[in-house]
Simulated assay, not measured.
Amino acid sequence: MIKVLIVEDDPMVREINEKFLKKVDGFILHNSVNSIEKAKDVILEGNLDLVLLDVFFPLGKGTDLLKWIRQENLKCDVILITADRNTETVEEAFRYGAVDYLVKPFIFNRFKEALLQFKSRKNSFENVDNIEQSIIDKYTIKDNNHVLEYDENIGEIKGFNQYTYEKVLGGIASLGDDSFTSEEIAINIGVSRITARRYLDYLEKENKLIVEMEYGKVGRPKNKYKIK
């Protein structure tokens, strides 16, 4: 199990992150604290794999904790979870080795994707003396073929809203390159099949998805969608 420390001063956000973490297999909450100093105490105890870290605190910044971890040569990784969209903060986070950066508010699927990517990389590196280039490329070179272009004007279209649109995009992203039905997306993100179908059909009309008919032995054929 991957042991995780959550560092967040807002009790409501901390509780949400804890609940999200429990829903991802392979991870366990090691501790949850509300300040940088408390986080340092927990990290120094050792036996920790990952820190989910906010940026803004009454005393200090999360990036200061990230720098401290690197300066002390401590073996744990960090994912930033913050409302800070400042370019300098993002650049600084990656410069000091953050493995991901989530901007609040975010959907659960994006949170899950960050954790599963970290778990996959960690598992690939364990008990291996030499890493092949193909394995390194898997975690450093992003294949954008399965990423849909974001439409920031979707909320202006009658009958559509930005929040549901983002949930649909997150649901599609979580399936990677696999084809999917409207029923699968609906279950994935917690909306009705009709709602999922409307958004998928919109994306198909925008030439972002392709749709194929899947014929079974009985009943109507199913629409199967795939990122173009």
Rank of each mutant, 00 (worst) to 15 (best):
D41G: 03
S120K: 14
D137H: 03
I69T: 01
N34Q: 12
L209I: 10
E206W: 08
A98E: 10
L80P: 00
V78G: 04
T89M: 12
L59W: 02
K67C: 03
N130Q: 11
V13T: 13
M213F: 00
G190S: 05
G219L: 12
V33Q: 01
G216M: 09
I79M: 06
K138R: 15
N144L: 14
K208D: 08
D77R: 11
Y215W: 03
P58S: 07
L50S: 08
K158A: 06
L29W: 07
D9H: 09
R197T: 12
I6V: 15
R14G: 06
N127S: 10
K222G: 01
A39H: 01
M12C: 10
F111K: 04
I79H: 10
D64Q: 14
N34I: 07
D177W: 00
K122G: 00
H30L: 02
R70L: 08
Y225V: 09
Q117S: 11
N207P: 04
Q162N: 10
L175R: 14
K224A: 08
G26H: 11
I28K: 11
M12P: 04
V33K: 03
K61W: 05
I194V: 15
L29K: 09
V168A: 01
D143F: 04
L102Y: 05
E126I: 07
V168H: 03
Y199L: 09
I194W: 00
Y150K: 14
R197A: 05
Q71V: 06
S174H: 08
E204C: 10
M213L: 15
A93H: 07
A93L: 12
E126N: 06
E37I: 15
V51C: 04
N31L: 03
D129E: 13
D100Q: 10
L5Y: 04
D100R: 13
V4A: 08
F108T: 05
P105T: 02
V128F: 14
E149Q: 14
R197H: 02
D9E: 10
Y165A: 00
N223M: 06
E206F: 01
I107R: 15
C76M: 13
V103P: 09
G60F: 10
R70S: 01
S192R: 12
L21H: 02
D41Q: 11
N130G: 01
L80D: 01
F94I: 12
Q117C: 00
G155F: 11
F57E: 05
N223Q: 11
K167A: 11
L5M: 07
D25Y: 05
L169C: 03
V128S: 08
K208F: 08
L29I: 05
V13Q: 07
L80I: 10
I81L: 08
G171P: 03
